[in-house]
């Protein structure tokens, strides 16, 4: 902890202890973070909480971390414990959908109330600098010739890069169950394997590889966004005739059984928070891409994503 943050924490402690909190009227938000402290959802949830306070729509935000099973444990607790609570929020995202499909928990996401999609990150596929292959087309050509010889390196099984790899295979007419996906335990290990040329092609969120791509240690051959990412000269898969678009998005859900008016209030609170300075700073610091989507459009988006994820995972033998 830097000294200034250290001091700030101490100051905040003193303030929290000394000030009577009931003095103002804004809501006390309870934020469920269905992951252990320190991860991506945790950062998102705490940043959103800070933004809610910064935008003065929430007075106090309390966080609860409940990690496990790609968020399914936290979801179960959220659905059971905060029924009808108009001030409860839960962080979630694409990974939770994957977790629900593979883990088959006893609760369903549709029991909770969709509020908003917040951010999104797209994947990039890279080749080792000294790879004989040069473009995505080369990768596809080799994939068609011998699926086993194309070693896809990335994060754990069911991660967005894994699903994207399976989708690419399906698009180019290769059996997705035949792809040779090497699931590494942590980001660093996958990075090492790509740098060392131990895998043919690597995939990850763009920000994780940005440094290596910029320094020429990896060659980016395709991003999974619909259009080129701002300021990044890497072709999309779609441009290259591979109809694959996949983002690792994060969003928030409200408690089950809240009224339409309560849902509207919550949505407005989140939208107000998106406009706060604290949120802008968090977006910048964490390299997130804004992807705000609310109301019925968000609900439909989740349903569609759920269906397409399930289809891909079933076809590639992940489920």
């Amino acid at each position: 902890m830097r000294r200034d943050t250290f001091l700030k924490t101490m100051a905040a402690l003193a303030a929290a202890g000394a000030l009577p909190l009931a003095a103002r009227a804004a809501a006390n938000v309870k934020m469920m973070i269905p992951a252990n402290p320190g991860g991506g959802w945790d950062t998102t949830g705490r940043a959103l909480g800070k933004a809610l306070q910064d935008a003065k729509v929430a007075d106090n935000v309390s966080y609860e971390n409940k990690g496990g099973a790609a968020g399914a444990l936290g979801l179960a607790q959220f659905v059971n414990a905060s029924k009808g609570d108009p001030n409860a929020l839960m962080v979630m995202g694409a990974v939770m959908l994957g977790g629900i499909i593979t883990g088959k928990p006893p609760v369903n996401l549709s029991q909770a109330t969709p509020i908003a999609r917040l951010t999104s990150e797209y994947n990039v596929f890279v080749l080792p600098a000294n790879s004989p292959l040069k473009t995505m087309a080369d990768v596809v050509a080799q994939l068609k010739k011998d699926p086993g010889s194309v070693k896809w390196g990335g994060g754990s099984r069911g991660s967005t890069e894994h699903i994207a790899a399976a989708m690419i295979a399906r698009e180019v007419g290769v059996d997705p169950a035949k792809i040779n996906y090497v699931a590494f335990r942590g980001g660093g290990e996958a990075t090492a394997a790509i740098l060392g040329g131990n895998v043919t092609v690597g995939g990850s969120g763009y920000s994780e590889f940005a440094e290596y791509i910029n320094t020429g240690k990896m060659k980016a051959v395709g991003v999974t966004s619909a259009t080129r990412l701002k300021g990044i000269n890497v072709p999309t898969l779609k441009e290259q005739g591979i109809n694959v678009e996949l983002g690792n998005w994060r969003g928030v859900y409200g408690a089950p059984g809240i009224t339409a008016a309560q849902r509207k209030t919550l949505t407005d609170m989140v939208l107000a928070a998106m406009k706060s300075k604290a949120w802008t700073e968090a977006m910048e610091k964490n390299n997130w891409t804004p992807a705000v989507l609310t109301g019925p459009a968000f609900e439909k988006f989740v349903d569609d994503d759920f269906a397409s994820l399930r289809a891909t995972m079933v076809k590639s033998g992940m489920v």
Binding site: G38, R185, G186, G187, G188, E189, T191, A192, L195, G196
Partner: peptide
């Protein structure tokens, strides 16, 4: 280390 998303290993000294 892993809680911080850092994987000690070949890359640690560079990253």
């Amino acid at each position: 280390f892993q809680n911080y998303g850092i994987q000690p290993g070949p890359q640690l000294f560079t990253n």
